[in-house]
Design a protein around this nucleic acid. Sequence first.
DNA 1: CAATAACCGGACCGGGCGGTCAACTTGTTA
DNA 2: TAACAAGTTGACCGCCCGGTCCGGTTATTG
Lengths: 199, 199
Amino acid sequence: MTSTRPLRADAARNRELLLAAAADEFAEHGLDASVADIARRAGVGKGTVFRHFPTKDDLIAAIVIDRITALNAVGEPLLTAPDPGAALLEFLTAAARQRQERDLSFLLEAGELNAEVSQVRTRMYEIINALVDRARDHGAVRDDVTGADVILLMCAPNYVTGYLPEAPPDLWRRYLAIIFDGLRPEGAHPLPQPPPTLA
Amino acid sequence: MTSTRPLRADAARNRELLLAAAADEFAEHGLDASVADIARRAGVGKGTVFRHFPTKDDLIAAIVIDRITALNAVGEPLLTAPDPGAALLEFLTAAARQRQERDLSFLLEAGELNAEVSQVRTRMYEIINALVDRARDHGAVRDDVTGADVILLMCAPNYVTGYLPEAPPDLWRRYLAIIFDGLRPEGAHPLPQPPPTLA
DNA sequence: CAATAACCGGACCGGGCGGTCAACTTGTTA
DNA sequence: TAACAAGTTGACCGCCCGGTCCGGTTATTG
């Protein structure tokens, strides 16, 4: 890796200001938020944005990496939690809550941005697969459901509440509960299509 | 209403070409698809687009109205179907299938475009509410679930499969089945949040 | 307290967007 | 078939976007 010397004090502060401002701006306007608006919100010139993040995509990637890394830090210890079913539900709750604090649904719109995003995202997939496998072995989720299913479905609670402009902040919990009930073995009906595989 | 005299023959044909081209283009590139591209795809000048649809939003609204109206035509007869649970599932299946044929997830991004959209959308809400009420009375869906819940969740199957660039065309059926299982009374756990109300 | 390298800012650029318009073509009708 | 309204077209406009660049500013270091 490039072991660069530490940033100057003001530069480091501006970098943090920019990340926070960008997260807020993306939350309000989606990924279409303009770099100029982000700079203004951070109280900084537009050129400064591009000094820290050569491309708008690099700025997005930095935020995505930050959030996924935080999520992985939640998931890691849950891999050995005593109750695998509760562990999976807790992970999904953490994921949805993270997106509630600031509306980060835009994270999902972002595709493959760079190698680091791919790496941290792959690690998240591994964690989810392991959590689902353990929960399935434990009888907490139905036999015919896979990690890929959960990866796809984990975004849904925040997504569906996004249609309500003034949704109560915790409404996603309702839909996470409904979807999680659909993952349980009790009363499960056979699924009409085989599970997908993730790239 | 404005009882306008019939369109000239070529104008009527161009209007249909435009609607089809716009649906295709929006399906491929989302609502960001440019009017110029739509015109080119329809084999028509850009000015012609704005003659038929004064605004890009008007073009979107025309498509949205078309699709929702078609969906309402499916739902209406289901209101008196003998098996209310099967009727609800059939409606949700029709809704998701419609969005599969051409990827019409962009329909959801479109907010309140004009009065006619609001009207036809309101009718759709009424139909869904009635279908859910009947299914609930019949014991086919859990007691604590409302029409608003189903309205929010009905978009989810197509949404989650949208993350897979090359998803099998029928994959949405798998997630509709999982979510519908979450709506069933068997094995339902209490929901942590009250249902929302729709505007 | 210099001296210097790192950093900042905002005018500027090329490009693509939604939308307009005036000259031209064509379906319709008497 | 003549004449006109209706329809078509693509060049054009103003705007905003991501990204560049260089003259001025500031933190750091000896």
